[in-house]
Amino acid sequence: MTKHTFLTLMLLGFLLPMQAQIETITQVIEPALLECRYKWVQKTDTLGTGIAVDTMVLRIGKNVSQSYPQSTFFGDSLVNTPNGGELFSKLFDAALGDTTGTIPMPMSRIINEYHYKNYPKGKLTTWAPRATVYQIEEDYEKQAWTLVDDSVKTVFGYKCQLATCTFRGRTYKAWYTTQLPYSEGPWKFNGLPGLITEVYDTKNHYHFTLVSLKQNNVTPVCFYNIRSELQPEVEKIDRITFLKQRGEFLLDYNKQYDYMETDYHEH
């Protein structure tokens, strides 16, 4: 048996118990009309020499949408298996020694947050499972977009138009298509007259590009109740306080980059 085959079989062995456990922590909110996946690239230092790459999942329903990094879901699901700690260690060791690129690290590559737009109605809820699981609730509002006339670009085969906005400390450019009439986008982006296919800040610290679409047999829009059994009640926290706590983490570990929302520096 080749090393590649062995690693693949080992990964499948981890995924089977994970799937069973995912079902126990899943609350279906509503059917999904569309599932989008975006390549998410983040600069990890001010020189732009380091990057982190992940896949952002966007699942859109009639009333609610959810958005989360694929690596976060993988790692959180793994830890929530009956023997999660042991499986995590084995998969970590396997990924560390893997030269085939088939074994992912069982942890978040960028952030570990799940965003739910219009859930509950009129609110945007962020579920942030860390050592302590936090729930952040804010008003669900669209960005103040400015549409750019005579701008055309093709993204993922769709004719797109350009829009710009300033949102919580960063200025963004977004390409959207009216061929997919969903006023949605990755992360917290929304409010354009069509699906956002590409969006990035003007410093290009964060960049999302659509890489796949699924319109049939889509997984429902779900709430994943990921938390430790040792924390039966989730801690609710306001957005600015949460960001300030994360900002202290950056200082403690001398990180040379900042979060997407930088307006916490103003408070």
Results as ranks from 00 to 15, higher is better:
residue 2 T to H: 11
residue 2 T to R: 14
residue 4 H to Q: 14
residue 6 F to I: 13
residue 8 T to S: 15
residue 9 L to R: 09
residue 9 L to T: 09
residue 12 L to Q: 15
residue 12 L to G: 15
residue 13 G to V: 03
residue 13 G to R: 06
residue 16 L to D: 12
residue 19 Q to D: 08
residue 20 A to N: 10
residue 22 I to P: 05
residue 23 E to L: 11
residue 24 T to E: 11
residue 25 I to Q: 06
residue 25 I to C: 03
residue 27 Q to E: 14
residue 31 P to C: 05
residue 32 A to D: 01
residue 34 L to G: 02
residue 36 C to M: 06
residue 37 R to K: 14
residue 38 Y to S: 02
residue 39 K to A: 14
residue 41 V to Q: 09
residue 42 Q to M: 14
residue 42 Q to I: 04
residue 42 Q to P: 05
residue 43 K to W: 08
residue 43 K to C: 07
residue 44 T to E: 15
residue 48 G to H: 04
residue 48 G to A: 05
residue 48 G to Q: 03
residue 50 G to T: 08
residue 58 L to I: 05
residue 59 R to S: 07
residue 62 K to N: 09
residue 62 K to L: 11
residue 63 N to V: 11
residue 64 V to R: 00
residue 66 Q to C: 10
residue 67 S to M: 04
residue 68 Y to I: 00
residue 71 S to C: 08
residue 72 T to N: 14
residue 74 F to S: 02
residue 74 F to M: 03
residue 75 G to P: 08
residue 79 V to D: 10
residue 81 T to L: 02
residue 83 N to G: 10
residue 84 G to P: 02
residue 84 G to S: 06
residue 85 G to L: 10
residue 95 A to P: 06
residue 95 A to S: 12
residue 100 T to Y: 12
residue 101 G to S: 02
residue 101 G to M: 02
residue 102 T to Q: 15
residue 106 P to Q: 02
residue 107 M to W: 08
residue 111 I to H: 07
residue 112 N to W: 05
residue 117 K to D: 09
residue 118 N to V: 01
residue 119 Y to A: 00
residue 121 K to R: 12
residue 122 G to N: 09
residue 122 G to T: 05
residue 125 T to A: 06
residue 127 W to Q: 01
residue 127 W to D: 00
residue 128 A to G: 05
residue 129 P to W: 00
residue 133 V to Y: 03
residue 133 V to I: 11
residue 134 Y to V: 01
residue 134 Y to D: 04
residue 134 Y to Q: 03
residue 142 K to C: 10
residue 143 Q to N: 01
residue 144 A to Y: 09
residue 145 W to E: 01
residue 147 L to T: 07
residue 151 S to Y: 09
residue 153 K to D: 12
residue 154 T to R: 15
residue 155 V to S: 04
residue 156 F to I: 04
residue 156 F to V: 03
residue 156 F to Y: 15
residue 159 K to P: 05
residue 160 C to P: 03
residue 163 A to G: 04
residue 164 T to W: 07
residue 171 T to W: 09
residue 171 T to Q: 13
residue 172 Y to W: 11
residue 173 K to E: 11
residue 175 W to R: 00
residue 177 T to I: 08
residue 180 L to H: 04
residue 183 S to Q: 11
residue 183 S to P: 05
residue 183 S to L: 09
residue 184 E to V: 03
residue 189 F to S: 02
residue 193 P to Q: 01
residue 195 L to M: 06
residue 197 T to H: 01
residue 198 E to W: 03
residue 200 Y to G: 00
residue 203 K to Y: 12
residue 204 N to Y: 11
residue 205 H to P: 01
residue 205 H to W: 13
residue 211 V to G: 07
residue 213 L to C: 05
residue 215 Q to H: 14
residue 218 V to T: 06
residue 222 C to V: 08
residue 224 Y to W: 14
residue 224 Y to C: 01
residue 228 S to L: 06
residue 229 E to V: 13
residue 232 P to M: 04
residue 233 E to F: 09
residue 235 E to Y: 13
residue 237 I to S: 01
residue 240 I to L: 08
residue 242 F to E: 00
residue 242 F to R: 00
residue 245 Q to E: 10
residue 245 Q to T: 05
residue 249 F to S: 12
residue 249 F to Y: 14
residue 253 Y to G: 03
residue 253 Y to K: 09
residue 253 Y to T: 08
residue 253 Y to I: 04
residue 256 Q to M: 12
residue 256 Q to T: 15
residue 256 Q to F: 12
residue 256 Q to H: 15
residue 258 D to H: 06
residue 260 M to I: 11
residue 262 T to V: 13
residue 266 E to H: 13
residue 266 E to W: 09
